[in-house]
């Protein structure tokens, strides 16, 4: 309890569309502890990105947060004014986006964007102008160096389009880190990147986490990435958390049929010649869902007891799963 940096309780985020109200995030509980890396896994439409966009206060109409509490260091972020929220965003919590090219301002140099970030959030900067500018330039170069960009001094004067995709992703991380946040939310930081570059970026995040002692939320669809970089994992499906626990345990012995299916779906050299067993069917549309287990229609283990709303059940050793089969006495 005491070591929780971020605590999300009963978060419900909906989008009003003409077809009806889409419940993108439905009753999500999540905890990020100090210094840990939490992996958030799910397919498109699982609500993994929307959950953390909600935490950042970045949900815009037609979307809205309908219910829930978001506690950051004990303060309820939903109760804050937009101005207070802006101050937290960037300074205490930073977020990097999947698409670095569109997330960076094409009209400003990288150095200008980093300076902007620090000016806005860093009170420790010296008051006098000259000293302030020097401090910012120094810190910016240091940050670019930290993310592995050589000759940082010159690179600061370049524009985003002059960098390659991997470089831009690193720059976005550098900007996010410029204010030394306590929590970094990285939304699919490597999806758009090639494997060799992906490995560089992920290791960078892991190294910096150790160095700055910050917490990281790594949103991804790649269980391999989670297995190698995250302490704990949270699997999401159709707007709900279906399984949480220490990464090695969850991946080694998944309790929820969806997690099992996901793991069985990954093709591997070791599985050559064997049939992979894909999860049948597709993710349900998030409108007017029946009050039953959301994985019901695709679940190979389904039974009549799954036709009512399913809670998260304690599966021991810090694990939880949203499946009645975790609790033997519930299965008739």
């Amino acid at each position: 309890m005491t070591d929780a940096l971020l605590e999300v309780n009963g978060l419900r985020t909906v989008f009003d569309t003409r077809a009806g109200t889409v419940c993108a995030v439905d009753g999500v509980d999540a905890t990020v502890r100090r210094g840990e890396c939490l992996g958030v896994v799910g397919e498109s439409g699982s609500g993994k990105s929307v959950t953390f966009a909600s935490v950042m206060g970045l949900v815009r109409p037609p979307g809205r947060i309908e219910a829930g509490r978001i506690l950051f260091e004990g303060r309820d972020l939903r109760a804050l004014s937009p101005r207070q929220m802006r101050a937290i965003r960037g300074r205490d919590i930073a977020m990097t986006m999947q698409d670095a090219l569109t997330a960076l301002n094409p009209a400003l140099t990288v150095g200008e964007q980093m300076a902007e970030m620090m000016e806005a959030h860093d009170e420790s900067l010296p008051a006098s102008r000259g000293a302030r500018r020097r401090a910012i330039a120094e810190r910016s170069a240091e940050m670019l160096g930290l993310v592995g960009i050589p000759s940082a001094g010159e690179r600061l004067r370049q524009y985003p389009h002059e960098f390659s995709g991997g470089m831009r992703q690193r720059i976005m991380i550098a900007i996010a880190l410029a204010s030394r946040p306590k929590l970094l939310i990285a939304d699919e930081p490597t999806t758009a990147l090639d494997v060799t570059i992906q490995a560089q970026v992920l290791e960078l995040i892991t190294d910096i986490r150790a160095e700055l002692g910050m917490s990281v939320v790594l949103i991804t669809h790649d269980l391999g990435v989670v297995a190698e970089h995250c302490d704990r994992v949270m699997v999401m499906y159709a707007g709900q958390v279906v399984e949480t626990g220490p990464t090695a345990d969850v991946i080694g012995a998944p309790r929820h049929p969806y997690t099992k299916g996901l793991l069985a779906s990954i093709p591997r050299l070791a599985l050559r010649g064997q049939r992979i067993r894909p999860i049948e069917g597709q993710v349900p549309e998030l409108i007017d869902l029946p009050p039953q287990c959301r994985f019901y229609s695709r679940c190979p283990e389904r039974g009549p007891e799954c036709l009512r709303p399913v809670e998260m059940h304690d599966a021991g050793e810090g694990r939880e799963a949203r499946c009645v089969r975790v609790v033997p006495e519930m299965v008739s």
Binding site: A19, G281, P284, R298
Partner: peptide
């Protein structure tokens, strides 16, 4: 198998896009 059939037959839940 029948589950797949069922879901694919039903198509996306928003047919009137």
């Amino acid at each position: 198998m029948s589950a797949t059939e069922e879901i694919i037959a039903a198509g996306p839940a928003e047919p009137a896009r």
